[in-house]
Amino acid sequence: MEKTVYIRLRHRLQVRPDEVIFLKDIAQVIADEEIYEPLCKLALYQVTVNDRNIVVIDVMKVIRAITNLFPNMEVQSIGPAQGIVEIVAKKRKVSFPLFLLVWLLLFIGAALAIMNFHEDVSMQAVQLRIYTIITGEVDSKPLIFQIPYSIGLGLGMIIFFNHVFKKRLNEEPSPLEVEMFNYQLDLDNYVALHENKESMKRIDDH
């Protein structure tokens, strides 16, 4: 009787340089007990220096390796068709001066941007008018409106991002985290198709 093995490639995998990638690293495997062990120890790829930092392992390569080992095996692949292997040399330390520089850049940029926005939408004129409508008096600097406004500005951004430093206001992911995730997914999609020589076939005429 023909036996079936189910594999599901992992989306992302981090390895050290010069490591050998085994089937159990790159995929979740369901198989009969007598073949499970040899399957898990099936070497798929030797990471070398030439690989730089990303290797894409196509599911076809995995199936080919499994059928080489067990010719009568039926392989069922579930999930993504490519696994992305990220080669991590050593943990990259965040350089603190660089971080400080970016922090200051964002800080000053945000301050300038909000001042430009206020000028652009004539915020001062509107505020003076609101002051006059509510109180009936004229004040060229209605700080009683403007200081709560400025604090509210920061509060609104915090509410939107659902973040106060490390503390979260509730369980849901913030729009920024979703955005980060989407960006990573786009990058992965690009890498999976672009770094994978099997996924494209071109006319070779140069």
Binding site: V102, L106, F107, I108, A110, A111, L112, I114, M157, I158
Partner: peptide, 9 residues
């Protein structure tokens, strides 16, 4: 940084 920048600005 962004939030403080907006408030201080």
């Amino acid at each position: 940084a962004f939030v403080f920048g907006k408030v201080i600005g």
